[in-house]
């Protein structure tokens, strides 16, 4: 049972990847990329969990209380920002592709090959 949180992260990554490989819609593909990325949140938070720990904010708990690992939380925050901005940038590319080619199907984009 103790493996489950870690395995969930791996599963989310692969499911997102599967969605991207088989995608027929670019918005969906970028969404799947975000799904794959959320696996990193799950893994990092699972790694940082401490049994019986609370949030690492000492404003309203006594110093010395058991808290979960704050480092992974900081990393996840950075990761969230990175993910959100990359998604926004990729979606702006998708908008322009739709406008220029009239399609969102990645299989229909055949301008670059060989």
């Amino acid at each position: 049972m103790t493996l489950l949180p870690f395995l969930a992260a791996g599963w989310i990554f692969l499911v997102g990847l599967y969605g991207m490989v088989t995608s027929r819609n670019l918005v969906h593909a970028v969404g799947c990329l975000a799904v794959a990325q959320s696996s990193t949140y799950v893994l990092l938070l699972a790694v940082g969990y401490r049994r019986g720990g609370t949030a690492p904010v000492f404003a309203d708990i006594p110093v010395g209380s058991t808290v979960v690992d704050p480092v992974v939380q900081a990393l996840v925050l950075t990761d969230v920002v990175v993910g959100a901005t990359v998604t926004a940038l990729l979606l702006s590319l998708v908008i322009q592709i739709r406008k220029r080619t009239g399609t969102l199907d990645p299989e229909a984009l055949t301008g670059l090959k060989g």
Binding site: A46, R50, P56, F58, V68, P70, V71, V72
Partner: peptide, 24 residues
Amino acid sequence: FGTDTHPYGDRAVRAALAHRTANV
């Protein structure tokens, strides 16, 4: 899962308190 060993995390808590920042 839920291990008690978080060396970096423990150091970070100490360093945050030393810099008087409540939100680690």
